[in-house]
Design a protein around this nucleic acid. Structure first.
Lengths: 169, 169
DNA sequence: CTACATGCAAAGAGTTTGCATCCGC
DNA sequence: GCGGATGCAAACTCTTTGCATGTAG
């Protein structure tokens, strides 16, 4: 478990926060996700171990972990935030707009691209996670096998979209 | 107005859909946004011209335009979808996290990167714009001495795919 | 023992849906 | 006039919040 390689308990206690069973189970559940995990999925995993845990507690704990820097959160455009344990080697993601599956891509593939932008624009890109959207191989094949294009487009646009450049808090 | 350069009325009618005053005003409102516009903002613009228009109509029309390919939508991770008129040349942005200025980058710089990912992962990236977060040259120089490393993220977007990078606490 | 955490329920934001009515074509 | 489009309100999903109670340190 990734989070056990760092002393997260010490991090919490040092700042005057408490290490509760709920928080430990929730952090475990975040780690169990290979990549990004939705709050809902985390909640389900948590319930399996401790059914009494409330959803609000999960959300509060996730927010708490994000503030401590133990967890990253992101909005992948599926209508739910996703969470991932922090402190992994740089890696990036490909998100399929059709099936919403997430693939990882190596930082080696990304770095040269950023290097080039930094050279050209003198812009320092800060990248913990880069998320690219598209259609995965499996869904490309499915579509080629005669899925209705219109209804598929509808599905995609109704769940996710392009994006925004300006005014971020 | 971008949407008047294409015959959107014909596109609608040809497929058996109707051109209503509401739809025209809503499409106008999407175009009035320079870049990405939230549904809420679109709704506000629409109301200014035709106060009776319902929010549900706005959502339905936006979804309808997305299905026709006239508009792109995205979830940017700000809790709202954003919309942009389609049919613009691919454009990408670098957004400075410090001064919030936006630079454009050439698609030529981006395409080889996507090509490489498509080759390696067989993942078809569906991107009409890519948005990267970082620090611009000016701000790099300004903060050269006392660096305040708060939240940086890299973010990307696709034709109808959204995204958001993982946020640092 | 004293804040911080939790559980519960209710509220909130943003978006979608069911249904009767309306109106483009 | 027919069937798609709209308005209205209610539902729905995901997330947050207020408050009393519980418990880690």
């Amino acid at each position: 478990m990734t989070h056990n390689t760092i002393n997260y308990q010490r991090i919490m206690r040092e700042q005057g926060f408490r290490v509760t069973p709920q928080r430990q189970i929730i952090l475990d559940a975040v780690c169990e996700g290979q990549g990004h995990t939705t709050a809902e999925e985390i909640y389900r995993r948590v319930q399996a171990k401790m059914p009494a845990v409330n959803q609000a507690t999960v959300y509060r704990a996730l927010d708490f972990f994000c503030n401590l820097g133990l967890v990253f959160s992101a909005d992948v455009g599926i209508g739910q935030k996703v969470y991932e344990i922090a402190g992994q080697t740089p890696h990036h993601h490909l998100v399929c707009q059709t099936c919403h599956r997430v693939e990882q891509i190596s930082h080696k593939l990304v770095q040269p691209f950023f290097d080039r932008i930094e050279q050209t624009n003198h812009f320092h890109i800060h990248t913990d996670h880069l998320i690219l959207f598209g259609i995965c191989q499996t869904c490309q094949l499915k579509t080629a096998n005669g899925l209705d294009e219109t209804s598929q487009a509808a599905k995609i646009t109704s769940q996710s979209g392009a994006n925004d450049a300006f005014a971020r808090p």
